[in-house]
């Protein structure tokens, strides 16, 4: 049976962008902001009805690392840094020592006092530990592998409150890197998958399902095809998609304007026969 869902942080609606701006300028109250935020989150959850997996829109996340850079000991949010090859920037995680989790990260509030998630039964994104460390900066006396392991412990511990997890690992761009993370990901005991930056048509056995951003016929069950393009505003023509594959987006939906992201989700619903 064909399976399909979308990935990552979702685009904020214009209404929410405007509300956050007005809140920052103290022109609306927190209660007004929160009301709009929840309405926008609900709109996204509603739009996904009928998809194989419903994802938290994560509209409160200012970047994929931010809940952690703000709430983990020995980490702070550093300079603005380009995210992959996009024109979207994140605050680089700066490690001063090995990270230590003192409180539940996603239970904290964001910069505006909004929650990082609203439903624990939806798919929640978490930064993959490899991408997290590789996207950050650390003193030369810290060991990179150890940092990845420590981040994995924190992220996996965080995941225990949720039913289904998407680990964002866009810097895992070939199978060798993925293979090198087998020891780490094999300690994850929940349900979920890794969204990678892999474009190769080959694949390997791995303890978790993972995405590749290309189409292959008859893929193994643990391969998710990231073929819905968030870097194009053309709506996909899903003809010739086999009905035994699982498809998703090739990156976070937030790289599309809301209107197009919504159209892509509606196209997926149509593909799945959802009315």
């Amino acid at each position: 049976m064909l399976k399909a869902f979308v990935s990552g942080i979702f685009p904020r609606q214009d209404e929410l962008i405007g509300a956050i701006n007005r809140f920052e300028k103290k022109r609306i109250s927190f209660e007004e902001l929160e009301k709009i935020f929840r309405r926008c989150e609900e709109e996204w959850l509603d739009l996904q009805k009928g998809l194989t997996i419903v994802s938290e829109p994560s509209l409160g996340w200012n970047d994929i690392f931010r809940p952690f850079t703000l709430n983990i000991k020995n980490l702070e949010a550093g300079p603005l840094t380009r995210y992959l090859e996009t024109n979207t920037f994140y605050r680089r995680p700066i490690f001063s020592d090995y990270p230590v989790k003192e409180n539940s990260v996603l239970e904290q509030k964001n910069e505006y006092g909004l929650p990082f998630y609203i439903r624990s039964d939806s798919k929640v994104i978490l930064p993959g530990p490899y991408t997290f460390v590789k996207s950050g900066e650390y003193p030369s006396n810290l060991d990179e592998r150890r940092l990845v392991e420590k981040m994995a412990e924190i992220v996996f511990d965080e995941s225990s409150n949720f039913k289904y997890i998407e680990f964002k690992e866009p810097l895992v761009q070939d199978l060798n890197i993925l293979k090198g993370l087998e020891d780490i990901y094999s300690t994850f005991s929940g349900n979920g998958y890794i969204s990678t930056g892999i474009r190769q048509k080959s694949y390997l056995d791995f303890s978790l399902p993972y995405t590749i951003s290309t189409y292959i016929e008859n893929p193994p069950e643990n391969i998710i095809l990231g073929i819905i393009d968030v870097f194009s505003t053309k709506i996909e023509d899903f003809q010739n998609i086999e009905d035994n594959v699982t498809i998703t987006t090739n990156e976070s939906l937030e790289f599309l304007p809301f209107r197009i992201a919504k159209e892509k989700v509606l196209a997926i619903r149509k593909l799945l026969g959802v009315k």
Binding site: P11, R12, D14, I17, I20, N21, E24, N62, D63, L80, N87, T88, F89, Y90, R91, E111, T233, E254, F255, L256, P257, F258, R259, I260
Partner: peptide, 18 residues
């Protein structure tokens, strides 16, 4: 043509044309 905005950073967005 414009279909909407895309994030630059934090809550800063720019209109990205197609």
């Amino acid at each position: 043509v414009y279909y909407g905005r895309v994030r630059s950073f934090d809550n800063r967005y720019y209109k990205k044309a197609s």
